[in-house]
Structure formats: C-alpha cells, structure tokens
Amino acid sequence: MENNPDYSAPPLPASPAGEPAAAVAQRAASRSRRAFIVGGLAALAGVGGWRWLLTRPDADGTPWPFRRVLDANGRLSQAYFRETRLAPTFPKSKATTRQNGNVGLGSFDPAAWRLQVQGYAPPGAPARTQEFTLADIQALPRVDMTTELKCIEGWSIVVNWVGARFSDFLAKYPLATANGHSARYVSLVTPDEEYYVGLDLSNAIHPQTLLCYEMNGRPLDGPHGAPLRLVTPLKYGIKHLKRIGTIAFVDERPADYWAELGYDWDSGH
C-alpha cells in the first residue's frame, strides 16, 4: 500500500484489523441508526424553533424575539459608538441627488413655520418650550459637509449638506439638560406629525449631525425637507427626518415611524 500522502496529518484511527465482518457491520449499523436519529431530532428541533419564532406576538411589526435581538444589537453599537469616529467625506463635485419618501410632507405654510423645541423636563423640572426661526438656526456656525447618504434599501449617494451642528444649537440653547442631567433621547416630528424619528442624544451631538437647510448648493426644496431637516451619517436615510416641526428631549425612547413597521429602532452606522 502506498504511504498515506496526507503529508502532515496523522492517520485516522481505525477499528482493529481482523475483526469479523459481521461485528463491523453490526457496529456500523447501530452507530448509523443512533446518529441519524439524533440528526433527525435536531432537524425537528430546528423546524420547531423556526415555527416558534414566527408565531411569537409582534413587537412593533416583527416577532418579539427579533425585536429583542435588534435592541440588543443597538445597545451594543451604542456602547461601541464614539463621537470622535467620523463618517468619510467626499469632494463636493461627487454630490448628486435622489429623492425618496414623502411621508410628513403634506400641506404646509412655509411663512408660518417655526421650529418648536420642548426642553428636557425630568420629574421636578418645569416644562419649557422654545420657538426658533430659520434665521436663528442660520445664525449658528455654518457647516459645509459632503458625506454619503445610505438608504436602508441598500443604495447610497454622495450629498453636500449645509447646516448648523446639532451640538452647536445645544451649546447655545442648552435645552437638552436640566438640573445638571442630560436627556437620553431626541425626538423629531414633522409639522403634520405624520413622520417621526428618535435617536440617542449621543448621536445627535456628534459633530456630523446637522440641522440642515441647504443641499448641493441650494436651499432645501420641498421634497427634500424644506425649510429644515436632520442629516446624520450615523444613521440610515430613514432617520434623516425632513421638515422638522418639533424637537423634544426625553428619557423614554421616542416613537419612530419605521421602527413601528418592523425596522430596527437604532438603524445606526
């Protein structure tokens, strides 16, 4: 017999030579039976697990075990999140546009628009609401940023955005803190209250999260969220709420339009 040419591996263990053929056959049969029974049971358990998963009650549009995993994934990525990590930027010349999504952009009077901000009001602190005009936002340091917008559908485009940093807004108007504490979340809602998103405050104060009023060198137009929208390369496009009506700083995780339809609440990058 030729030497085993499996160069470095030791030979496979074998039953003793000279064992009667009947004994070998019997052992093979009983081991096979056992292995196939265990395998069959494991396969049945897998099918059972699949059916169990799909029959669990929904938690916001998806069986609750999925929601639990998505939320755990979200907590993990928030724990890993650092505001020093920046999304890559691109030359302005690469900027293009692709309009997608009209929810929350119903009938609207631009002249009457004011940004309503509900300050953080933990138990014991007084409720505060403050109104801002677009000029108030434009008076903040102007940031020009060209980043990649990633749609949850899977496409991406490079867009040039101009706006005020959310963090600069809060530095000037400290509405996210009260009694020395900070809110955990930010809620954003369109004026018609049809579209709404939530994000962690830590994401909102990332230097690339903007209250945006210009896109690709022009003031925002209606379909892109005039007069003011959220832009953040820390999230899929679904979180880039167009036409901000109200911003609120809260401790409870805010409602989120797409998260109620089965998507990940965090949807973070």
Partner: peptide
C-alpha cells in the same frame, strides 16, 4: 453524520513495516 467510514483494508501482513497504526485507504 455518523463519523465513520467503512473501508476495505488489506490484511495485517500487507501493511508492511510501517510503524504505528496502519493508515487504511
């Protein structure tokens, strides 16, 4: 599935002088 394979191994005499356990084909 079961881990083993049944092989036709030559008798011990044919295994030659190879030390250690034979390596069946």
């Amino acid at each position: 599935v079961a881990g083993f394979e049944i092989v036709n191994a030559p008798g011990p005499a044919a295994d030659g002088p190879a030390p250690g356990p034979a390596a069946p084909t």
